[in-house]
Design a protein around this nucleic acid. Structure first.
Length: 856
RNA sequence: GCGGGCGUGAUGGAAUGGUAGACAUAUCGGACUUAAAAUCCGAAGGGCUGAUGCCCGUGUGGGUUCGAGUCCCACCGCCCGCACCA
């Protein structure tokens, strides 16, 4: 043993793990199972520090659970369908399949040196026909179970490229390639009936105790349960009614207009005869379809000329407007506007000269609303007038509840629980996705493909048929033969669906597939029953809503279709959302153009907290803690770190400096420090190994006490995702061991325990120390150290003494001293005597083992 | 716009409502060295004081409490998501 050489150590132990096949997961009854899963990556081609952090966290849990006697499943795969592959094909020729599998091979080889405890025998990519074929089977089962249906929906349409665009491809309302103004276009598309489960998906959130509260709250708000009422408005022209959904029927007195969605049937019937309406509707169709854009856009409308009767006041007529802010998907696609109690409605009313009328007032203030809407909190008391006087005298919430009943009693409306959650449109007009396995037959209509014909493979799979990416649009549409097939029902020539599935479908059930990746059906129930649920799921907060909600829906759908047990309806028992890895940006404004120039970390030298170009010494600006981004040149390649310092250093650092749920800033000095620390541990091991085995020393007990405290703290840290705190304790204990003059036996016990406690984070170094200290077998198989309670307790405690809540002194007392005695001791101290100045304290609070506070 | 989160030394951060700043970086001092690097030892929130000590201090302003970084209210700033990016 000489110096710490991670490259040699890490290769050696990875080989040893491979040889012993230690990470292969097999169903067995003699150990409790533990399934740990990190959100699988998209194969972009390069792993980045965010991946390293994510997988290292999962690895820490997996290895810790192995050493606590669990049968651990820790798989890895690839979320491999998606637009970037098609974009690459369009940009530089080639085929998405080659690009994707090439990237997977690259990324796998970049991940292996990290020494992750992954069962690679279960690896799959979602673009493997073996995977998406089972996904098609699942789709057919869901179709049969009534969980899938077709309806019209809008897409972003690029009129120049003649293709559907993803939201991401729409930039300022224009197509990203053509620059043409994007339109909305209606297509018939497939939908999952997730809204049927809205209530269940919401109420089941309560049981997810080991999910972050913020994620549960975000999902709850996303599902958006609201109690309201559907009210019928009668048209004065006698041409039927308009149904409005409202969560605020208590504001009905102040209703001054009806607003309907541009694609509301009433609006569409008027379009032909009214060029002004048609033009407006057309303008609405050009609007960005994202919710953020809709909300931010100026609220505009056009009067249709239609009038409806106010449901309560016979003499009041309300104009019906088309509003660009009304969504057809939510409620009935029509709302009534009450300007007095809604700022958006007030702005709209003022813009178009509509009247403003209060429905209620705040107690003691009956000033009518003019420029600012009166929007009370639901718990605030309000005073209703007219029809609602007296029925709703408590709070605003009472008013809403009471008026819903009032309208129902009068037969004017129907109470309804409405969800914001919309059905999940899964059709994508793209090539690189899972084909939707249905066939269109002139005679039989829409026919599901037969299961024995699955997988319906992408054309490339059937023998290198050329796919043309030189023009935009879906290559499946223009493929010469792929669409042609026999109708599964009648056998006559028919055409395949050319839409593929949203890639979110792929990631909504992969966790279940990992339990039996080679099964000839979507899952193997025996395996699923054993391995599900995922005990710990780890990934980015950016997936807090869609991916996790879709997965929860799919787990339920898979139960309904017989592919998962009911107990797996909530697939992820515990969820952890980790933060990003950030890095400072080094930049300087170009003196000529004024545009910023970004420099790579390697081009910069740091001195006294300032950054200088290594080349010529020019000072550059430092922007701290920015998301790593290729365009800002602030990306650190994990492979460079591994080749310079080793995987253990990279793993140690990404866990060390920040709490895992928060962002961590990558710094060269931090990585250096991690490396130095591991070297230090290594040299301590070296020193102890060189000691005389019989050598006695001083402070054995202190060292062992510190060791047991460290076992306790690190165990707690790992169990509670406090990896940074656990690492801080390991630093502390390492320093103690380094300075220790204890005998060989105690020091050897300490270094072995230290290696074990570090093993989840730095598995290679730990194996090596274990071997050098004569441990038997592999450290990964050694049981986790246990803290001895007797060694954690100490005889005396130091209690701080506070005077009026400010620390003024301390006392050392026996740990078991009773309260009265502690108080007496505290009162006798100089600090307290000085503060009392001969008087008596007003109050003395003694918290045993914690603190004494004297109030004077 | 809506929803969610975060804000503590020069920096990353620690702190079951109970000694604010653990641990690490950067900085400074010391040992070793011809010198430097590496390594080891030590100092360090700000202000006043010779020291013991005192005052101030967790984005801002209020509140609850014997006691608030932590809980509540309002505000400011930054970050994430918003349904066809993965």
């Amino acid at each position: 043993m000489a110096t710490y050489t991670p490259s040699e150590i890490e290769a050696r132990w990875q080989e040893a793990w491979d040889k012993a096949d230690v990470f292969k997961a097999t169903r067995t009854a003699d150990k409790p199972k533990y399934y740990v899963l990190e959100m699988f990556p998209y194969p972009s081609g390069r792993i980045h520090m965010g991946h390293v952090r994510n997988y290292t966290m999962g690895d820490v849990i997996a290895r810790y659970k192995m050493s606590t006697g669990h049968n651990v499943l820790h798989p890895m795969g690839w979320d491999a369908f998606g637009m970037p592959a098609e974009n690459a094909a369009m940009a530089s020729g080639g085929h998405p399949k080659d690009w994707t599998y090439g990237n997977i091979a690259d990324m796998r080889s970049q991940m292996k040196p990290l020494g992750l405890s992954i069962d690679w025998s279960r690896e799959f990519a979602t673009c493997d026909p073996e995977y998406y074929g089972q996904q098609q089977a699942l789709f057919l089962d869901m179709l049969e179970a009534g969980l899938v249906y077709r309806k019209n929906a809008q897409v972003n349409w690029d009129p120049v490229d003649m293709t559907v665009l993803a939201n991401e491809q729409v930039i300022d309302g224009k197509g990203w390639r053509s620059g043409a103004e994007v339109e909305r276009r209606e297509l018939t598309q497939w939908f999952f009936k997730i809204s049927d489960m809205a209530g269940e998906l919401k109420s089941a959130l309560d049981g997810l105790d080991n999910w972050p509260a913020k994620v549960r709250l975000m999902q709850e708000n996303w599902i958006g349960e609201s109690r309201g009422i559907e009210i019928t408005f009668h048209r004065t022209d006698g041409n039927g009614t308009i149904q409005c959904y409202s969560t605020r029927p208590d504001t009905m007195r102040g209703a001054s207009f009806i607003a309907i969605a541009p694609d509301h049937p009433v609006a569409q019937t008027l379009e032909a005869d009214r060029p002004d309406l048609a033009a407006f509707i057309d303008e609405c169709r050009k609007m960005d379809t994202t919710e953020a854009a809709m909300e931010k856009a100026e609220k505009k409308g056009v009067d249709t000329g239609i009038r409806v009767k106010h449901p309560i006041y016979d003499d009041v007529e309300l104009p019906v407007w088309i509003g660009n802010f009304v969504l057809m998907d939510y409620g009935t696609g029509a709302v009534f506007g009450c300007p007095a109690h809604d700022q958006r409605d007030l702005d709209f009313a003022q813009k178009y000269g509509l009247f403003v009328q209060n429905a209620f007032f705040m107690p003691g203030d009956d000033t009518p609303v003019t420029t600012e809407a009166l929007v009370p909190a639901k718990t605030e008391k309000v005073v209703y007038i007219d029809h609602f006087t007296g029925i709703a005298e408590a709070t605003s919430q009472h008013g809403i509840d009471a008026t819903i009943d009032w309208f129902e009693d009068k037969g004017l409306g129907t109470g309804q629980t409405q969800y914001r959650l919309r059905d999940w449109g899964l059709s994508r007009q793209r090539y690189w996705g899972c084909p939707i396995p249905v066939v269109y037959c002139d005679d039989c209509g829409v026919v599901p493909e037969k299961k024995e014909n699955l997988p319906i493979a992408l054309p490339y799979e059937n023998g290198n048929e050329p796919i043309d990416f030189s023009v935009p649009g879906n290559p499946l549409d223009r493929h010469p033969t792929w669409r042609d097939c026999a109708c599964p029902a009648c056998g006559k020539p028919a055409k395949r669906e050319t839409d593929t599935m949203d890639t979110f479908v792929d990631s909504s059930w992969y966790y279940a597939r990992f339990t039996a990746p080679q099964a000839q059906s979507p899952t193997d129930m025996a395996e699923a029953d054993y391995w599900m649920n995922v005990d710990q799921y780890i990934g980015g907060i950016e997936h807090a809503i869609l991916h996790l909600l879709y997965s929860r829906f799919f787990a339920r759908a898979m139960h309904i279709t017989g592919h998962l047990p009911k107990s797996a309806s909530e697939p992820f028992d515990a969820l952890f959302t980790q933060g990003m890895v950030t890095h400072a940006i080094y930049k300087r404004d170009d003196p000529q153009t004024g545009r910023p120039i970004y420099y790579y970390p390697e081009q910069v030298s740091l001195r006294d907290g300032k950054a200088f170009l290594t080349e010529d010494g020019t000072e550059v600006d430092i922007v701290p803690s920015a998301k790593m981004s290729k365009s800002k040149n602030n990306v650190v390649d994990p492979l460079n770190i591994i080749s310079n310092y080793g995987a253990d250093t990279a793993r140690w650092f990404v866990l060390s400096d920040s709490p895992p749920e928060r962002d961590v800033e990558w710094t060269a000095s931090g990585a250096e420090a991690a490396y130095k620390h591991l070297s230090r541990v290594w040299s301590i091991c070296d020193r102890i190994a060189a000691m005389n085995p019989d050598a006695a020393g001083e402070g054995d007990e202190e060292l062992l006490r510190a060791m047991h405290a460290c076992i306790h703290d690190v165990t707690m840290g790992i169990e509670s995702f406090g990896f940074n705190a656990a690492i801080a304790k390991l630093y502390g204990f390492t320093a103690t061991l380094q300075k220790s003059k204890a005998g060989h036996a105690a020091q050897r016990e300490a270094i072995i325990t230290l290696a074990q406690l570090m093993a989840p984070m730095t598995p290679h170094l730990s194996e090596d120390i274990w071997a050098h200290q004569g441990g038997t077998g592999l450290i990964i198989h050694a049981p986790w150290p246990r803290a001895d309670d007797a060694m954690l307790k100490s005889d005396t405690v130091t209690l701080p003494i506070q005077i009026n809540g400010k620390r003024r002194g301390e006392i050392n007392v026996p740990a078991d001293m009773d309260k009265a005695e502690v108080e007496k001791t505290a009162m006798a101290t100089d600090a307290v005597q000085r503060a009392l100045n001969g008087g008596q304290p007003k109050k003395v609070i003694v918290v045993p083992g914690r603190i004494v506070n004297v109030v004077v």
